[in-house]
C-alpha cells in the first residue's frame, strides 16, 4: 500500500462487505453484492489464521455491524416494533439501513431518515403503513426532545411591548408538533407498561449477541384511528408529550412557521368569534410560556 488512495479503496471494500445484510440465520452472505463468492473476496484482503478463515474473520465484523445498528433501532422504536411485530420490524430496519446507512458519528441519529423511508416505501409496513408512519414520527420526536437544542426561553412579559401584528415567537427547536391520525401516544404507553423500559449499553466495540429476541409478549390492540395533535417536548430535562386542542396546535404551528402572533391567532381561530376561545387562548399562552416553549424566532428553525 503506497498511498491514501489505496487505503481508501481498502476501506471502501471492507465497508461494502460490512454493510451487506446478514442472511436469514444471522450469518454473512455467501455472495457479495456483485455476485462474487464472499469467501474469495474476503481472502483477497484478509489473512486467515490457524483457527479462522478470512471469511470467518470478516464475518465477525459483518455481524457486529448489523447487531449494533439493529439493536439501536430496536431500542429506539419500541412502538413501531409493537405495531409491525418483531419480524416485520426487523425486515423494515434492514431495508432502511441498506438504503440509508448511518451518516452520523452517533447512533442517536440512526432513525433520522426513517420517516422519509416509510413515506417513500410504505410497503415495508403494509398493511399498517399509515399507523407505522405516525409512530415513527412520534418516536423520532422523542429522540429530538431528549437531547435536541433549546434556546433561552422568553416569557410573555418579555414581548409585551411588541404589537401582535409585528410579534414573531419561536417555538423551542427541541419541540416537535405532530398532527397524527392514530392514538400512538396511548399505544406507546401500553407498550412501555408491557415491556418495561430498556437501557441501551454503551461503548464497547464488540457485540456478541444477535439483536434481542421477542420472547412471549401479550398482543396489544393497535392504536385507534383518531385525529391527535401532540407536542413532544421536555421540561426540566424530562421527556413529555402533551395532547393539544386542534386550535392550539394550529396556533403553535403557525408561530413555529414564522407567522406573526396576529396572523397565527386569526388563522387558528378561523373567524370563530366565540369569546370563550379568547379566554382559552390566554390560558394556553401562559401555560406554554411557563413551560418555556417560546424562544426568539429565527428563520433557520422553521422547517
Amino acid at each position: 500500500m503506497e498511498s491514501v488512495r489505496e487505503l481508501k479503496e481498502l476501506q471502501r471494500l471492507m465497508a461494502s462487505m460490512l454493510f451487506r445484510p446478514l442472511d436469514a440465520k444471522w450469518r454473512m452472505q455467501r455472495t457479495t453484492a456483485a455476485g462474487a463468492r464472499t469467501a474469495d473476496a474476503a481472502a483477497g484482503f484478509i489473512k486467515p489464521n490457524d483457527r479462522l478463515t478470512s471469511f470467518e474473520r470478516l464475518e465477525i465484523y459483518n455481524r457486529q455491524y448489523w447487531f449494533r445498528v439493529l439493536d439501536c433501532l430496536y431500542d429506539d422504536y419500541p412502538g413501531l416494533r409493537a405495531i409491525l411485530g418483531e419480524r416485520k420490524f426487523m425486515r423494515l430496519c434492514r431495508a432502511y439501513l441498506v438504503k440509508y446507512p448511518s451518516a452520523s458519528f452517533t447512533l442517536r441519529d440512526l432513525g433520522s431518515r426513517l420517516e422519509k423511508f416509510l413515506r417513500d416505501e410504505p410497503d415495508w409496513a403494509a398493511p399498517r403503513a399509515a399507523m407505522a408512519l405516525d409512530m415513527a414520527r412520534f418516536e423520532w420526536a422523542q429522540i429530538v426532545a431528549f437531547d435536541g437544542p433549546s434556546k433561552p426561553a422568553i416569557t410573555m412579559d418579555d414581548v409585551l411591548d411588541t404589537p401582535p401584528e409585528k410579534l414573531r415567537l419561536g417555538v423551542q427547536p427541541c419541540i416537535t408538533l405532530l398532527a397524527l391520525d392514530h392514538e400512538v401516544d396511548h399505544f406507546l404507553q401500553a407498550v412501555r407498561k408491557r415491556d418495561g423500559d430498556v437501557l441501551r449499553g454503551e461503548a464497547s466495540n464488540a457485540i456478541d449477541h444477535a439483536p434481542k429476541s421477542a420472547g412471549k409478549k401479550s398482543r396489544l390492540r393497535p392504536p385507534r384511528i383518531a385525529k391527535v395533535f401532540l407536542a413532544v417536548h421536555r421540561c426540566e430535562n424530562e421527556l413529555y408529550y402533551k395532547r393539544l386542542d386542534p386550535v392550539a396546535f394550529q396556533l403553535l404551528a403557525g408561530l413555529r412557521d414564522g407567522l406573526t402572533l396576529d396572523t397565527a391567532c386569526a388563522l387558528a381561530l378561523g373567524g370563530n368569534p366565540d369569546p370563550a376561545l379568547a379566554g382559552e387562548l390566554r390560558s394556553w399562552f401562559s401555560e406554554w410560556s411557563e413551560l418555556g416553549w417560546f424562544c426568539k424566532f429565527s428563520k433557520l428553525q422553521s422547517p
Partner: peptide
C-alpha cells in the same frame, strides 16, 4: 470506522503500512 461519510460505528483495525501510519 467510516468511509465516504458512512459510519460503521465500529473500531476497525488498520492495515499496518507506512502510508497508513503517515496519514
Amino acid at each position: 470506522g467510516s468511509v465516504d461519510g458512512r459510519f460503521t460505528h465500529d473500531l476497525l483495525p488498520m492495515p499496518y503500512t507506512f502510508a497508513a501510519a503517515k496519514h
